[in-house]
Nucleic acid binder design. Structure first.
Length: 398
DNA sequence: TGGTCCCGCCAATAG
DNA sequence: CTATTGGCGGGACCA
């Protein structure tokens, strides 16, 4: 039960998947960790779920088991999941995030005050505002301490290989990455900065270049799933300078000059999930989520930020219904969802088909409004068709 | 082009 | 030993 999937090495692209078809071009984006994470969450984020079976998840989501590990590792770091046993995790859900974050914070505080001597325990200020993050000196040092990795050049010990391995785990990297945000009051951290802090600064040693490049890939992985969880968002601080903004538990919505745009919708937990525990400007009144956006932008130019969030919300909403993400026009397979963990390796192809696609708001601000209406359209028609029925059965799991 | 990051090989680890 | 985990980096994708 491992590699199947006729696909061999990366040398032979996914083409030739079912010889003839190859219809709508293979879209890499639909296979991103972020999308997969959304689907994963959609699959389990229900009240009656407590156990998460890796095999089941992989099968239902139509992906290699390997990918599930990636997701699970970062979700666990953020408290959404807890390892229960081999092949088994317990689903904590979004409600577990605050606690996990608090622990990370404490851990971080301990790291700075604990270690070497005097080190005042003020919550490192790090005069942010320098979005450029140019001058790093003292506050920077603290951060890198928190980030763990940092100067591992300490001759200390021949890091018992095991530690060495663990040190590079996605999980640890995730936790340190999150700590960076929690401990610094700057809510924006550039990719470069994060890489430097998390992976140690040895960029000057040419032979270390590869090493760093490899690690940065992990950062992208992590960022993708964290973004899909709405914990961070990717932004672009001046060309060629990607950065991540911490959204964490506070939805950042405008307050003044606002106009209400209400989206049909689901439940109040929704806003919790989308914006964290402190629901500030989001009003949730019986099955209707109102969203505020700045007035002057009433026309086609809503602020990017607003559009993005709007879309995120929409996505969430779409995701909610019976726990699945409906790709563009493919509610296909929703009715046959379930068959509660169909045994025998028969990987259900319809799953891949219906789950694979979903949108990825964080990276496509331009087309957001289009996508948005597109989705609402699809959603409405689907809902009308299937809606009332009451036979929106939930998928089982284990 | 070069930033992103999917994919799956295969080495650690767990059982 | 077999199965589960997951580091790792080649190279495809796409802005």
């Amino acid at each position: 039960m491992h590699k199947r999937n006729g696909i061999e090495m990366s040398s032979s692209p996914p083409r030739s998947l079912d010889s003839g078809l190859r219809h709508h071009s293979y879209c890499r984006k639909q296979k991103s960790l972020g999308v997969l994470c959304s689907n994963f969450v959609s699959l389990y984020d229900r009240d009656d779920v407590e156990l998460v079976g890796l095999d089941y998840a992989a099968r239902r989501l139509g992906v290699e088991r390997r990918r599930i590990y990636d997701i699970v590792n970062v979700l666990e770091s953020v408290g959404v999941l807890a390892r229960k046993a081999k092949n088994k995790y317990s689903w904590i859900g979004f409600s577990g995030i605050p606690k996990a974050l608090k622990e990370l914070r404490d851990e971080g505080l301990r790291a700075i005050s604990g270690c070497d001597g005097p080190c005042d325990k003020e919550v490192l200020e790090d005069e942010d505002e320098d979005i450029e993050g140019q001058n790093h000196d003292d506050g920077d040092e603290k951060l890198s301490k928190i980030a763990g990795a940092s100067i591992e050049s300490s001759f200390s010990k021949a890091r018992s290989a095991t530690d060495n391995r663990k040190e590079k785990s996605l999980g640890l990297l995730t936790r340190n990455f999150v700590k960076l945000f929690l401990m610094s009051d700057a809510d924006t951290i550039s990719l470069d900065e994060a890489a430097r802090l998390l992976l140690g600064d040895m960029s000057d040693l040419s032979h270390m270049r590869n090493f760093n490049a490899a690690k940065v890939r992990r950062l992208y992985d992590i960022a993708n799933v964290l973004s899909s969880m709405n914990l961070i968002e990717k932004i672009q601080v001046e060309a060629r300078k990607p950065a991540f903004r911490w959204l964490g538990t506070k939805g950042k919505l405008k307050t003044d000059n606002t106009v209400m745009v209400s989206l049909p919708l689901i439940d109040k937990q929704l806003s919790k999930r989308a914006f964290g525990t402190e629901i500030t400007n989001v009003e949730t009144k019986r099955s209707r989520l109102s969203y505020t956006i700045s007035k002057k932008s009433s026309k086609a130019q809503l602020r990017n930020q607003d559009l993005k969030e709007c879309n995120l919300t929409a996505q969430k909403q779409l995701n909610m219904k019976n726990g699945f993400v409906f790709g563009p026009f493919c509610p296909a397979g929703v009715t046959k969802v379930d068959d509660h963990f169909e045994e025998s390796g028969g990987r259900s192809s319809q799953d891949c088909e219906s789950l694979a696609c979903s949108l990825r708001p964080q990276y496509h601000n331009q087309a957001l409004s289009e996508l948005f209406s597109h989705y609402m359209e699809a959603w409405k028609s689907w809902y009308a068709e299937l809606g009332q029925g009451g036979n929106l059965q939930q998928p089982y799991d284990m």
